[in-house]
Design a protein around this nucleic acid. Structure first.
Lengths: 221, 221
DNA sequence: AAACCCCTTACGGATATCTGTAAGGGGTTA
DNA sequence: TAACCCCTTACAGATATCCGTAAGGGGTTT
């Protein structure tokens, strides 16, 4: 079994619940917990440099902002940072998100080894996921249907980026600027226009208000 | 200290974290946990009828849908149901919501005794909240500013009429026409402009997208 | 009655949106 | 290589928005 596991989870109650369960129900020598991505990364890096690396990272995706600004503010950022140091570390994501369009890129882009969806069986699933990943298999919570192209229009990461900014009141011109600053492409106002128009068709929306309203009500933004 | 506490929380990891902490750090004889609102209510009701009532309910607000349809699907519904049976039971809400506009009604309408916002100190706060509520005081997580100027801006019927139409993709010109057809006054496009601009200020929105998004997320449309 | 406030409305200008057309690049196919 | 498709981008025109100014009406205050 894994010898050293690092837990990154910002909710104290959840964090304790995970640590307790792993301590009581698994044979792991060393389980460490952190409430901030930055702190988790530091702990991971120190251990790696001391040649006592962690075998497994279990991380949430969304982290509340703390009182001081942080460099790493999301599970995705943490995973990227960790992988740069140690490409071989195993990663399991433990999050409440259940949208395949958001989970899929974690596997394809970030090469995570397991995804556990928080819920009424989340802790049991996490234990199973750890065992599976230890056997070099991947694990995904059964309620997630990753290959569900079931006619529902899939919003990809890029769509979500734009939609979330629109919902926060940015204009398309501003979004275009933001994308350019972040070196994300495509980034022209014209392309954003086109993307959104395509979403109008896909969701039967008359204009931006309508589209944003529909998607929020569907819980997709 | 409270003798019997009931926990309603649907995420298994969080649920276990809370129960473990209360068992280890408080002197409570009987702590019971449930993952569904309905089950929590049943357990509460049976205990009440057996004259061994719970002293305190600790509940989340949002619950995932399960495989079978349930009668009670939210913390709010659970609180209402519980209060109908036993108006005196103490209630503490433990949720990730941090919007005063959503938390205020819990105190004013549902007469809860404490509100703990999940976060990096959530478990410690919950312990304090339980102690405070036991002393017949109320508790609110310090990061929540209930009397911040968002003193629950009231949307009147006319505001809602306009906002709902905007959320359904009507333009202000169309809304003006609709109002005229229904002999509702005022109905000029200019007045609708003014009303909505006033709502921008009230809710700190940059434009219509932003306003609609905020209000839907707050559950006000 | 005059002064005042608030609401409604019209209007105009600066921006933003929505939509269509067209040009160019990259990749695939024939 | 040519034909083709898809994506990105620029551009332009019609609408829609956002916001300020100003005029008029109704009610209240002085």
């Amino acid at each position: 079994m894994f010898k050293k596991i690092l837990i990154a989870e910002d909710f104290q109650d959840t964090n304790k619940g995970i640590v307790n369960a792993l301590e009581n129900r698994m044979e792991v020598e060393d389980i460490q917990e952190e409430l901030y991505c930055d702190k988790a990364f530091n702990r991971f890096k120190v251990a790696f440099l001391n040649k006592e690396p962690y075998d497994l990272l279990v991380t949430d995706l969304s982290f509340k902002e703390g009182p001081v600004a942080r460099r790493l503010t999301s599970g995705q950022a943490l995973i990227d940072a960790v992988r740069q140091v140690d490409p071989d570390i195993k990663v399991i994501v433990n999050s409440m998100i259940d949208d395949p369009a958001q989970i899929n890129p974690l596997f394809t882009d970030q090469k995570i080894n397991g995804y556990v969806c928080k819920g009424r069986n989340g802790l049991n699933e996490l234990i199973i996921a750890i065992q599976e990943v230890y056997q070099n298999r991947t694990y995904v919570s059964p309620q997630i249907n990753l290959n569900s192209n079931n006619s529902v229009f899939e919003l990809d990461k890029y769509d979500l980026l734009i939609l979330q900014d629109l919902a926060e009141g940015f204009t398309k011109k501003e979004i275009s600027e933001k994308l350019k600053n972040q070196n994300i492409s495509p980034n022209s106002e014209s392309t954003i226009d086109k993307k959104v128009s395509r979403l109008f068709d896909a969701f039967g929306a008359k204009n931006t208000h309508h589209l944003i309203a529909k998607l929020i009500k569907q819980g997709r933004i």
